[in-house]
Nucleic acid binder design. Structure first.
Lengths: 219, 219
DNA sequence: AACTCGATCTCGGGG
DNA sequence: CCCCGAGGTCGAGTT
C-alpha cells in the first residue's frame, strides 16, 4: 500500500466525466492496483477512485489509471508532501453476525414458531420477479409466503405484495397468505401490511439463536 | 488527516456486530473525526469504519470511536509501523456530468423520439406523491407519463405505477399511458412493466447527445 | 430532523 | 458469466 499526500488535480472519464480542481489530497494506491483519492472528510467514500482490476502508469508527476472498459482516472501531481509504501499482507477479513441471511437461515429451521404444524417448502422460492424468502405450508396445507427483513419498512411490504399477487395466479399454490417478518417493523409498514391482510411478525434474533442452542443441547 | 499503519484488531458493535482478527492495516483518521480501516485491496470500501459525526478517544493503544446512536468501533493497536499527520484544508469538491438529470434534460428536448408528433407538457410534473419526470401528449392529445432512469429496475416500475394510478384519477388527464425509459432495463423490471401495460424504452445517451449536436450544427 | 432516491454504488450468492 | 438483492449501504436534496 502506497500513501501519497499531494496537491493535485484529478479527472475521471468513463461512466460519467468528473473533475477535481487543485487541492491537497490523500492518494491511496493499493496492492491490487486500485487507486482512490480522499479529502479530509467522509470516512467511507473517496472523492474519486478506480476499482480493480486496473493499471497505473506513472510518468513524471502525471498518473493515469485505466481499466479494461477503457475508463481513465488522470491525476496530475503539483506538489508532493508525503510518499511512503507499506507491506500489509493478506487480510483475514471481516466476521459478521446478525445479518438478514442468518435470520432467514434461523427462521427456515424454525418455521414452527410462525404456526403449529407449519413446514418449509423451500428458501429462496423462485418467481419471475425474484425469489421469495420462504415458502411454507400451514397445518392445513395452505401456502404461506414469508418476507424476512432486518428492518421492516414499506419497501419490504411492497415486495411481498408483488410476490403474493404473482403466486396467487398459480392454481397449485393459491390462495397464498403473506407474512412480513422482521426484527423491527416501522409503524407505517405495519399499517400498510395489515391493510393488505399481511400478518406482521417481530423476530427475536437472540431467541431464535436460543432455540437453536437449546435444541443442540438436547442431543 | 492522520495516517497510521499498524497491526490491530477491530470490533464494531451497532447495527450489527463484526470482528476483524489481528493483521496489519491502514487506519485513516480524518479532520471530521471519522475513522476508517483499510486492507490492501478494494479501492472503495473500508473493512470497517465510523461515519461522522463521531468521536475518537485514544487510551494507550486502545481506540474507541463512538457516535450519537452509541455504536462503537474499537481498535486495539498491537504494533505501530507508521504514524503521520497532514494538513489538507477544505476540498473544492467534485464536478460531475452525465447523470440522470442530464438524461431527463436531453429526452425532454427530444420527446419526438418516443413517438411522432409527441409534445412535452412539462418536466417534473408535480403530483401529491412526487414529481413525474416527464408528462407528454401523444399525436392524439392523449397523456403519457415518462419515468426516466439510468438503470431501469423494479423500484422504478413501482414508482411509475404509483404516478399512473394517481394521474388516472384526474379526469382532465385520464387515460394516462406509462413509459419506462432507461439506458438499461433489467429483465425483471421489463416483465413487471409489460405486465402492467407500461411500455419500455431503451435510451441511447450518446445518440441523444448526437441529435443535440446535429441540431446545433444546423444553426 | 426525517424522508426519499440516486450511485462511477460495492459486495456476495446463485443459476 | 450475468443477474439479482442487500447494505452498518452512503450522501445529497427536499419537506
Amino acid at each position: 500500500m502506497r500513501l501519497v499526500i499531494a496537491r493535485c488535480t484529478v479527472d475521471y472519464a468513463g461512466r460519467l466525466t468528473a473533475h477535481l480542481p487543485s487541492a491537497v489530497r490523500l492518494l491511496l494506491v493499493k496492492a491490487d492496483g486500485s487507486v482512490s483519492v480522499h479529502a479530509d472528510d467522509r470516512a467511507y467514500k473517496p472523492l474519486n477512485w478506480m476499482s480493480p482490476p486496473c493499471w497505473l502508469t506513472e510518468d513524471d508527476g502525471s498518473w493515469v489509471v485505466r481499466n479494461k472498459a477503457d475508463e481513465t482516472l488522470t491525476i496530475t501531481l503539483e506538489e508532493i508532501q508525503h510518499d511512503s509504501s507499506h507491506e500489509l499482507g493478506l487480510d483475514p477479513g471481516l466476521v459478521k453476525d446478525g445479518v438478514e441471511a442468518h435470520l432467514q437461515e434461523l427462521l427456515a429451521e424454525h418455521v414452527h414458531t410462525l404456526g403449529d404444524g407449519w413446514t418449509l417448502v423451500r428458501r429462496e422460492y423462485p418467481t419471475a420477479i425474484g425469489p421469495v424468502d420462504l415458502l411454507c405450508r400451514d397445518h392445513d396445507g395452505g401456502s404461506v409466503a414469508v418476507e424476512i427483513k432486518r428492518r421492516g419498512e414499506i419497501d419490504g411490504v411492497e415486495q411481498l405484495t408483488r410476490y403474493l399477487e404473482l403466486l396467487n395466479r398459480d392454481p397449485l399454490l393459491a390462495p397464498v397468505q403473506g407474512i412480513f417478518a422482521a426484527q423491527q417493523i416501522k409503524p407505517q409498514a405495519r399499517v400498510l401490511a395489515t391493510d393488505r391482510g399481511i400478518r406482521c411478525v417481530t423476530l427475536d434474533y437472540d431467541a431464535l439463536r436460543g432455540i437453536e442452542s437449546d435444541e443442540f443441547r438436547l442431543f
